[in-house]
Design a protein around this nucleic acid. Sequence first.
RNA 1: GGAGGAGUGGCCGAGUGGUCUAAGGCAGCGGUUUUGAAAACCGCCGUACCCGUGAGGGUACCAGGGGUUCGAAUCCCUUCUCCUCCGCCA
Length: 434
Amino acid sequence: MLDGRWVADHLDEARKGLARRSPETSALLDAAGPLFERRRELIGKTEALQARRNAANEEMSKLAKGGDKATFAARRDELKELSGQIKTLEDELGKVEREVEERLLSIPNLPHATTPDGQSSDDNPVQRTWGEQPSYDFEPKPHWEIGAALGILDFERASKLSGARFSVLWGMGARLERALVAFMLDLHTREHGYTEVYPPFMVKAAALRGTGQLPKFEADLFKTFRNDPEDPDALYLIPTAEVPVTNLHADEILEGDQLPLAYTAYTPCFRSEAGSYGKDVRGLIRQHQFDKVEVVRFVPPEQGAQQLELLTGHAEKVLQRLGLHYRVVALCAGDLGFSSVKTYDLEVWLPSQNAYREISSCSWFTDYQARRAKIRFRAEPKGKPRLVHTLNGSGLAVGRTLVAILEQFQQEDGSVIVPEALRAFMGTDRLSAR
RNA sequence: GGAGGAGUGGCCGAGUGGUCUAAGGCAGCGGUUUUGAAAACCGCCGUACCCGUGAGGGUACCAGGGGUUCGAAUCCCUUCUCCUCCGCCA
């Protein structure tokens, strides 16, 4: 979340920044100024009375020992009155603070100066393109046809088990999924310096609040409960490893010389995607459950911008090693994720759709997540704690990588060439129907 | 799931209603001493927020929330976490 104090002091600047996302967004600030003033005022009043009570307590302590019952009783009655006033003020202050907090939690981050203007994904400028767009002297098939013909992809049985938007991988399909996870984790740990993490796949609401999924995006999540759907301790299935991995350091003060911290994690991801029905109804592109290898970095604020380039490069390396043609776009302000100030999407080429499709999203959150999750560090051993900057990116979405491999490396006879980098894991250089 | 026990500052640990601003120790930082080091001694040593240009002042926080009281780390209720034993179990 944004710094409430900064927002109160820079309302115009904040409003301008949010307006780059959308006009409605900047309206979220309208009540912020007066509310913050009210908070200040209440803190002043409350603390003044609390100070009086503290002073009186000392006196009461002496009176209690002195044995002057009458004076004691008189003072006690006065103080009862004071305590009542304090209680009222504290309750009021609590209400205002909760309201400030609630509002701040639903205000998105301010787009970075280098984030391009624009309203939708159509306005995202292409930064660079890697590799040659492959050409085929036959009509390239969609991955679900290729997968069905190879006997490795099964949506009918998945539907029997779990309904729409689930999939079953068979045989070499399942193995390819596993190979991709292992390949990606190996690359990031051995060559890019990431520490591998295996986190829980279910988290508390606090973790989701820390990274920004809650309170605004509850509808996109799967929530679990035992008896009571409103149970405040109910757990959610993670929509991305970003959530458990970023929150690993919630409520911590890190030492400056530990930074940057770099973690990579494989997890399944669970998304309800309530708003997206009708899109990508066929195939593996949009599923309620999918695998992803994520990379997450905790860095000093000064390094945020350069670390985004570094992290994006690490995600790109996966595609490069696999030989998959892709491009990089910069998300425009209107298309930017809630917590991000700047995001690069990697888009892989899908010949059957004659389009580039998102396979990774690499974002810089400045101190927005760190403030929510209270992730701080000391630049100097004795220095004041400061908020870190967090970044993360998919490295990569595994299911979509599998899709890209099937589609880009498909052959006219229905077989699929296995990329060099995966052959040791797969034990073969080609997937064929038998 | 059942029965017990526990949750204090980076760590250990004292503290069961009023010198409250949490004893003491360890670790850490600064200094004295020393040719240097160790040891010893002295000092410092949490976080957030509010007021103040500043020096500084104030408030809150002893797992979380609520309550009793003039006053709570200390009593009561509740949630969570951890430990021990029993049951079940990949």
